[in-house]
């Protein structure tokens, strides 16, 4: 089958971008920030949020379709950025800034059979394009914890 083409349109100005997709739009602040008080979502926030969000919503939706009850899903994501000073253009820094590790743990409250949930999780991973793309270039460790 041919690939599906996914398109966004963006405009930029005043240090931020606005992305338009379908009939939706969202604002993107800096590429990356080290300022805990920066009120704007950065491109890296979106990337990591998308990586986690895909798995969380993917699990929730596939569970519903299979009529499995998940009472609550929470996730925590930790990512490691290598060469962060290179992102700031620091003189003397070697290499390029890149995420070298992404670890995400999903905590799922459920009374369903654990084997069924792990099979569901496996299928979610297989169906998740962001995860499948990123795992090819970064140490991506998704983990499921049943509570």
């Amino acid at each position: 089958m041919e690939t599906h083409r996914h398109s966004l349109r963006l405009t930029a100005g005043n240090g931020a971008a606005r992305a338009y997709v379908r009939k939706c739009e969202f604002r993107i602040g800096a590429p990356l920030t080290f300022d805990e008080n920066d009120p704007n979502l950065t491109a890296c926030d979106y990337l990591l949020g998308a990586a986690a969000g895909e798995l969380v919503t993917g699990l929730d939706r596939l569970a519903r379709r299979r009529r499995l009850t998940l009472d609550r899903i929470e996730a925590v994501l930790h990512a490691e950025l290598a060469q962060p000073l290179a992102a700031l253009g620091t003189v003397g820094e070697q290499g390029v800034p890149r995420f070298v590790a992404i670890r995400i743990t999903l905590y799922v409250d459920t009374l369903e059979d654990p084997a069924g949930i792990h099979a569901l999780w496996h299928d979610v991973l297989c169906r998740s394009p962001i995860y499948q793309t990123l795992r090819a270039c970064v140490a991506f460790e998704p983990r499921l914890e049943l509570t």
Partner: peptide, 13 residues
């Protein structure tokens, strides 16, 4: 501002 990884480079600059 120009950032440096170490003072030796900064002094040289």
């Amino acid at each position: 501002t120009v950032f440096y990884t170490n003072y030796e480079l900064q002094v040289s600059a």
